[in-house]
Every structure is written in structure tokens, then in C-alpha cells.
Amino acid sequence: MKKAKLTDSEYLVKTGKILRTKQMTKLEKYFEIALPGGENLEHEPGQFVMVSVPGVGEAPISISSSPTKRGSFELVVRKAGKVTGVLHTLETSDTVGIRGPFGKGFPTQILEGNDLIFVAGGLGIVPLRSLINFVIDNRRDFGKVDILLGCKTPQDMLFGEEVDEWSKRLDVNFSCTVDRADPEWKGNVGLITSLIPGVTLDPERTFGVVVGPPIMYKFVIIELLKKNIPERQILVSLERHMKCGVGKCGHCQIQNYYCCKDGPVFTYDQIKDKKEAL
């Protein structure tokens, strides 16, 4: 058996240095990561990276920061298995392996000039935040912006301070709901679908961008269609457990799509007839 070194392997990782961490909830931890020499990740909003710890393994993680943020990028990791469990033990100045960015992100060029309604449920805020902040940083290039946010309880709310900032902005309409409130909660209580009917929008020039758990898509999409938003103007980002990120390993396959390569962002039009997609 001979051995050769490869310089152009897709599996080569870059060393990502953790600049900052924050335990957001019991299960979710935030990481700010820089590549060697401050190299920019150069991702599109909605793409993901493969994050690894040598000897433990690799996991696909959505990029949560906008590409307008330079010099570093942000991830939020839910503790769900072996790799993410070890990632949760890492702190500032620890390193991780980074491959990517991978996949097709949100089509920002197509979205430009249009109205946007963002609908994020639970962890969906993590990938969607990359686009929301991109839009806020380029606010002039987009039309009316509505942000609808939903989570189980007020304690599950991620990016609380940032979300507060969004809610105070005059150039975005913001509303938020929780499934179960606590005594301090002053906002809406109920499912995220209940926020949609109240939004006024021009369906011809509005793109709905929806990210959340599978069950949420079904009901939110029904509400957006009721508003007459065309199917190809509804964007979703689908979760799959990618192992390679480059359209080979088969784990993320949705019928003839590889979620890691053809997605994770799809138009509703692309996936509505794909059983096993939602």
C-alpha cells in the first residue's frame, strides 16, 4: 500500500480559532470563529460549514453570520450528538476544523429590490439570521421587510439582544410569538402561523423566507400561499445530516436532490412534489 499527500482534497480542513463563545440556552452554544490570517469565509447567507474536532468527528453546522461581517464568522451549535457534545466543551482560543462553505444559500441577487417576509421557528433563526443581517446591512437594496419569529418559550429565544435591536428598528416590521409564555413575557402567545394573516403584503413582489422544523413548514407555507405569494417566491432551508458536504455520501438525499449541493435552500416550487422533503 502506497501513501500520497493530497493538496486538493475536499476533505482538507482549515484551522478555525474560536474567538468567543456564549452558552445561549442549555442546548445551544454560540461560537465566533476566525480562519488563519483572518481569511474571510466568503460564504453566501444560508450556506453551511463542516465543523470538526480531530478524533471525534465532523458535523454540518449552518453559518449564522452575514457575509457582511468580515474577518470572522458565527455558528450556533445544538448539542445533539457526539461531535456537537464535544464542541460544547470548547472555549475561546480552542481550535476546530472547518471545511466549506457548502451548498446553495439564499439567492440574494434575486431577492434584491423585493419585499421580504422572514419566518423563523425555533433553531431556524440560526441560518436565517445570516440573511436577515445581510439584508439589514444592505437595507437600501430591499423593499419592505417583515420578521416573524416563533419559539417554544421565552427562554428558548436565541440572539435575544440582537432580536431586541431588530424590534426597535424603524425600517423592519417585527413580531414574535412563543408557544408557552412565562409571567414576564409581554409579547404574543401562540403558533407562528397566527402572525402571518396580520401582515400586509404585495404577493407579486414579496419573497417568503421560511426556516424552522419540518412541521412548521407545512403550516407556514399554507398561510403564505393564502396570501397569494407564488410558490417559487417561497424559500425554505432544509435540515439534513450531511457527512461529506460535496454531494456524494448520500445521507442528505431528497429524491434526486442532494441537500448539501442542490440546497439546503430550495424554493417551495422545487420541493413541493418531493415526498420525504418536508
Partner: peptide
């Protein structure tokens, strides 16, 4: 891990 190094490799046999 100690050297913080990673190499991509190929093992093959003619």
C-alpha cells in the same frame, strides 16, 4: 493534535 496538523492523504495500490 499536539502539532495541530492535518494532512489529506490517499492510500493506493497498483
Amino acid at each position: 493534535k499536539a502539532e495541530n496538523s492535518v494532512e489529506a492523504i490517499l492510500e493506493y495500490e497498483k
